[in-house]
């Protein structure tokens, strides 16, 4: 991979993904934008620099950084606007002023997410992270998901273990218990998905340039809601491209997470 070429050429798939991530945080205003993963971090910082200036973001080391720290950068370069160690993070989380974008080893049509393990939880075939923060996140504040490698093993008919609460489970809990629940978006390397359907099942919101609807259908293990006209995910503006390439991710780490097709 030639960094120079990427830095000068037309928008890459990774950059389209980062813009789609940024769009997930549009309208959030003054709350903690907490994306996990390289492209989510680039996208979150892009949202703040380009169109959502009141967002609060972490430096990944116990502080909120006012400046756009590149992913993987030493936190000593952070302009810390507030101290937010882990115990305090849970207070922020339970208080609800947070929108997290997590990974998903599996996700289903309702937005149920699994990061705990594959197989039977009691003796898993493959132990992963455990429930980690997913139960608390999804029941307390807005959550989105990022999938760098869209395939039928990730987008499944039913997840092995529900860690993050989807819309069917939220509905069963009733309006009081689920009043803070929102699964905003799922962004993958192929397209963007939401739950803005009458029964909150997953809908194809846009396809990334160069991807067909058929490719996405083939890579998805359940039936998506597909509108008659599916728009293309928008391209970065010139200014957004400059921000990503020169300020937010000058080392081009985003291109390693999603290679340009």
């Amino acid at each position: 991979m030639s960094t120079i070429e990427i830095q000068d050429g037309p928008p890459t798939r990774a950059e389209v993904c980062a813009v789609a991530v940024a769009e997930a945080f549009r309208g959030d205003g003054e709350r903690l934008c907490n994306p996990i993963g390289t492209i989510p971090m680039v996208g979150g910082r892009l949202a703040r620099e380009a169109f959502e200036p009141d967002l609060v973001m972490t430096d990944g080391f116990g502080g909120f950084a006012a400046n756009p720290l590149p992913p993987g950068a030493d936190p000593s370069g952070a302009v810390v606007e507030a101290w937010n160690p882990y115990p305090q993070m849970f207070t922020v989380l339970w208080n609800g002023k947070r929108h997290v974008m997590m990974g998903a080893t599996q996700v289903d049509r309702w937005g149920n997410q699994n990061i705990a393990c594959i197989g039977d939880w009691h003796q898993p075939r493959s132990q992963l992270l455990g429930f980690r923060g997913a139960p608390g996140n999804t029941i307390n504040h807005t959550t989105s998901y990022w999938v760098p490698n869209h395939n039928p093993k990730v987008f499944v008919e039913a997840v092995d273990v529900v860690c993050g609460v989807g819309y069917d489970r939220a509905r069963e809990l009733g309006p009081v218990a689920s009043r803070f629940h929102e699964i905003r978006r799922v962004v993958s390397n192929l397209g963007v998905f939401d739950f803005e359907t009458p029964d909150n099942t997953m809908r194809l919101r846009s396809v990334h340039p160069g991807v067909t609807v058929e490719e996405i259908v083939d890579a998805t293990g359940f039936e998506l809601v597909i509108p008659t006209d599916v728009p293309e995910s928008r391209l970065p503006t010139d200014e957004e491209l400059r921000l990503m390439r020169e300020v937010i991710d000058p080392r081009g780490l985003r291109e390693k997470e999603v290679p340009n097709p």
């Binding site: 139960p135 608390g136 307390n140 629940h181």
Partner: peptide
């Protein structure tokens, strides 16, 4: 008390 766990398989397993 907390909300975390509600609606998930944590309480099932």
């Amino acid at each position: 008390p907390c909300r975390a766990g509600m609606g998930t398989d944590l309480l099932r397993v």
